[in-house]
Design a protein around this nucleic acid. Structure first.
Lengths: 252, 252
DNA sequence: AAGGTACTTTCCACGATGCGGAATCGAGGG
DNA sequence: CCCTCGATTCCGCATCGTGGAAAGTACCTT
């Protein structure tokens, strides 16, 4: 059995682990936090919190306003850029596997602001036509990837986003009723994957799963193809493989 | 005089500082790095690098592929979301100051993928009409904010981005020639601010400055108004105030 | 396929380093 | 102006991280 120290995996560094706690606490907080609040929430001594914050502040990872209150700084933004490129690169083999398995096109998508953006793709050998190209922005409510990403958001954040964007009808199958869509999101949360039955584009069916573990979903994987070819039996077993890929890609 | 320990501000934590070095090294690297490469680049002992990476990996901040090579993980993506909200919140008073100073609308914009996106705004009391609303995506080459953000990118990354997006003509003043635009970017880099002379929209002039310090530009601040009112003398002194705001907002 | 090489990972004793309680400082409210 | 609460600094102690070197492992070469 592996030794642990206060819930921290053995062979890891205490001060680093605590600093990451602070960053995550700041990330989950609405607004700013003071040293004392951070000390309370993390269970650390105020002096320790202050010292760690100094280190994070010196590197731009936390911001300090005029009245000694802290929030996340720009350092994280800088990393995010590079982290997304790394995610896209790591996703390639998984996407290729899914294409091999399904014969259809596989995609990687993330939520940017209120839009879903495709950031990676390996296309099917059988299809000349592209359903979505990398860089394309699509609405969250009419796509399988969008449903997965919305389902991973706190309910109030998802609802607020949908209020801003609305539920525009893309095809006759698009879900345009907020209540019906809320029910759909609940189904997605429950079973852990989503489907888009020609809701974004007539004739196109798409299945999507989250990347990461619950509470830490950062992207979605999808497979999409023509509705007449990619349905029913074609999907059997595929979802499980996709979920596995999503977990592995998310865990790194 | 303040004591320093190996270039690190006094009162900060060594292991945390080193871990942040690792993250930044990974962020600047193309592709993945092994323990040894990271040890070389940071000047740390391989054992130390390995231990710190374990801590970062356990928390999802670094990803480890099958052959023990490391890249940034999804942890940073998670933080980025919250960090951007914090940036927008912190920007509000600066934007309000700029509106007071200029009488025109002030904006905060970031680069997302290949687009410029407005993420914050305080509008002028004099203008009913909005030149850009929050959430709006605009091309980088025809806006002052876009020029500032492109100028902050490594030259090759900026060039690659422009090759992907092209330089579409928005008005008769839009710069559509890649070489001319490269010269424009050099001017922006040199003087530290950019202007858009009705290049995005006829009748609209816009001045922008970077947020952050060179090498760490994460956003741009801009002030925009009708070309006939917002020009020449109206800009005097404003740019300096904007640059100051950009530095302060970036430093946190 | 076997050997060699280079890298990653583990181990350990040392001591530098971060720890947290307590003292001090400073801001904001009454 | 004083008082209180929180942020910051200080300091002695022991914990925790450190780095060299050993052990293990993957990969390349022949």
């Amino acid at each position: 059995m592996v030794q642990e120290v206060g819930g921290r995996p053995a062979g890891t560094v205490q001060s680093l682990d605590r600093a990451l706690d602070l960053l995550e606490t700041l990330a989950h907080a609405e607004g700013t936090l003071g040293v004392g609040e951070l000390a309370d929430r993390t269970g650390l001594a105020p002096g320790t919190v202050h010292r760690l914050l100094q280190g994070l502040h010196a590197r731009g990872f936390v911001r300090r306003d005029g009245s000694r209150r802290y929030s996340l700084g720009t350092g994280a933004l800088q990393l995010a850029d590079a982290a997304q490129r790394a995610l896209v690169r790591s996703a390639r083999p998984f996407l290729a596997d899914l294409v091999r398995l399904s014969g259809e096109t596989a995609n990687l998508a993330v939520l940017e602001g209120d839009d879903v953006v495709y950031v990676g793709q390996v296309s099917s050998p059988h299809t000349l036509r592209m359903f979505a190209e990398v860089g394309r922005h699509v609405p969250p409510h009419s796509t399988a990837v969008g449903k997965v990403l919305l389902a991973a958001l706190p309910r109030d954040r998802a609802a607020a986003l949908l209020r801003r964007t609305g539920l525009a009808s893309r095809t006759s199958a698009t879900i345009t009723d907020p209540d019906a869509f809320a029910v759909e999101l609940d189904r997605v949360r429950e079973r852990g994957w989503a489907v888009d039955e020609q809701e974004q584009e007539t004739g196109v069916r798409c299945v999507a799963v989250p990347v990461g573990v619950p509470g830490r979903i950062v992207a979605a994987l999808s497979v999409s193809g023509p509705a007449d070819r990619f349905a029913g039996a074609a999907t059997d077993g595929l979802v499980e493989a996709m979920q596995q890929a999503g977990r592995e890609l998310g865990a790194g």
